[in-house]
Each structure stands twice: as C-alpha cells, then as structure tokens.
Amino acid sequence: MSLPRAASLTLLALALAALVAPWPFTSPAVGERVVRLTARQFAFDPPQVEVAQGERVVLELTSADVVHGLYLDGYDIELKVDPGQRARASFIADQVGTFRMRCSVTCGPLHPFMIGELKVRPAGGGARILLGASLATLAGLVGLRDDDEALRD
C-alpha cells in the first residue's frame, strides 16, 4: 500500500471514529434523572432530551391521544402506554451519543416518523461532526497524492 493511501485510509477511520466512537475522556456522573415524556401523534414532548453519561435514567411515558410506545435505539428498551396511564423504565446511560426514540405502536400515518432524541453527554454533537467532516475532507485531499504517484509510476 502506498503511503498516501495508507494515510488517507487512516484519516477516514479517524473521521468515522470522531463521529460515532465512544468518547474516551469521561468521568461518569452518578445520580438519577427522571425524564417525563408525553407522546402524541406524531411527536414526543420534549422532542430532545439530554442526560449525562452514567446517570440512572427513569423514562416515564404518558400519552395524550392514542396508544403509543417508545423504543430507544442502542439501549433496546421498549415501553407501551395507553392515554392517561403511565409507563416507566429505568436504565443506566452508559453509552454516549445520540439515540433515537421511536414510537413502537402503530399510531397513524406518520407513525414510522414519530421520533425523539436522547442525547447522552458528552455527545460532543457539533464538535464531533465538525471534526468528522474536516477529517473526511482531509482524507480526500491526502488520497489525491495517491493518484499523483500512480500517474508518475
């Protein structure tokens, strides 16, 4: 493998890691966080929730119109709730990142798009994306030198 190609691939891997890899520099928080969510066609309220890594999260789901559910990506947690009732689940937010909360009970036409977000800090959001995009661009530029060498050969 040529040097530029190797460098380019390394940069690609770094870009991906910047986007989705677990954050290494964390000091897990302790404590409990109660997150109250109200589901209604076709949203969770609040739509975006932030917790700290290591916290015990208690999800408390209610519904304001029809039967809804909640499936949390990454944590494989599912709740179902009838309007006026309350469903609870608790877990330790050990994985860092942004996880989608999806309605898990068909609740009308836009049901597949009924999505909320749980952010487990330090998710780095904007910083991660900025770093990922920069590294990917760099990988593309470094890869160019590979073409040059190939042309020279």
Partner: peptide, 27 residues
C-alpha cells in the same frame, strides 16, 4: 412484531457512508 435491528451498529454504518462520500467528493 416490529423491532429495529442493529440499532447500535447502524450509526457507524451511516457515519461510514457519509465520511466516505465526503472524502470521495473532496478527492
């Protein structure tokens, strides 16, 4: 029953597609 698959892995695959797309576009 409805059940999402590989929800832990999908963001990495999506990220790979986007990173590769951007790097290739740059090049």
């Amino acid at each position: 029953a409805w059940r999402p698959a590989l929800t832990g892995l999908v963001p990495a695959l999506q990220g790979a597609a986007l990173v590769a797309g951007l790097a290739w576009a740059t090049r």
